[in-house]
Design a protein around this nucleic acid. Sequence first.
DNA 1: TAGGGCATGTAACCCGTTACATGATTGA
DNA 2: TCAATCATGTAACGGGTTACATGCCCTA
Lengths: 181, 181
Amino acid sequence: MSLRIALLGLLRASGPSSGYDLAKSFESTLNYVWQAGHSQIYPELVKMAADGLVTVEAEGARGRKVYAITPEGSAQLRGWLLEQTPSLTVRSESALQAFLLPVLDPVDAVAALERVRERYVEKVAMLETLCDEHGSKAFGRYALDHGLRHVRTTIEWVDDTIATISRDIGHGGSCDENVAD
Amino acid sequence: MSLRIALLGLLRASGPSSGYDLAKSFESTLNYVWQAGHSQIYPELVKMAADGLVTVEAEGARGRKVYAITPEGSAQLRGWLLEQTPSLTVRSESALQAFLLPVLDPVDAVAALERVRERYVEKVAMLETLCDEHGSKAFGRYALDHGLRHVRTTIEWVDDTIATISRDIGHGGSCDENVAD
DNA sequence: TAGGGCATGTAACCCGTTACATGATTGA
DNA sequence: TCAATCATGTAACGGGTTACATGCCCTA
């Protein structure tokens, strides 16, 4: 379902596009929220056309097919956004890693956290660049803000966790010491 | 891969456990980071035993099998935590929804955001309860903290976004007005 | 005319979810 | 003895990723 909604959203926002365009849009805009490759997008567009949510508006060179969203597609998109209670479950490998850190001894845990931190600092830089490029253009603005805030939150968490664990090491402590706030 | 690591981590943290125990642990601790049901866990444990990462330590009543992590399993867990650069891609339906909000007219967008807000307020309450229960026990503490910070960040984002859009409505503005910071 | 980017598609596989199915034990 | 919970498994399905495969068009 989410793939459909994402494609309808992109078509709404960018106007008629080919599967190829949508695949690129996916990578450049939805990338850090949802992922889909062309091998998933092409068949889905065919099904969506069969369901009347999009139409092939034109066919161009190299077999290029330009899809446009139909009123029915727009209605379905709007309905989903207004009525759907999105599941709050998140699947995040890096959060899983964070969760499991306590099974390492503190020195190893700090090393692992420092690697994680580097990655997130890179990501923040990337998002800030994107932010500068897109500026206050409406589409993607809120989500970019959303993404930036989350990455910054993660970095703060990493820093605080490193501090807590380091203090533990300082105390010569192992994990069963009670860690006060 | 992640499922294996998660199971190894739980076995490390909680000691020898049955598949049933691990499924419950998953739900109560890893739940908001990674998900897995018993139908996925049982076969995986069998494969892990075949690979020498765990052993059946005992068999109890009702066919209960108690798995223990082997030194090889511990080594693999440690190796993954230290060396693996976890992918930063996150799949989040609610973030996708956030991304697509600009395709709605402002009044609808605010309505959608207010629904989202409710859900996250519930979630924060749930996590705070968990936090009180688990207290400062080492395992899960960092991740719980991680989760709480992220949910709170999301609520702040929702509030600020509602404010921005509401101001837009106040100005009688549609989306193509330039939204200043 | 050769290479790179445009453009579309299919197939195999892995992972995760939902549903189906079974049986033992315990406590009311 | 009946219901709930413990405990394990299998099967079908859907979604997503990787890899395979093809061909057109433009530019150097």
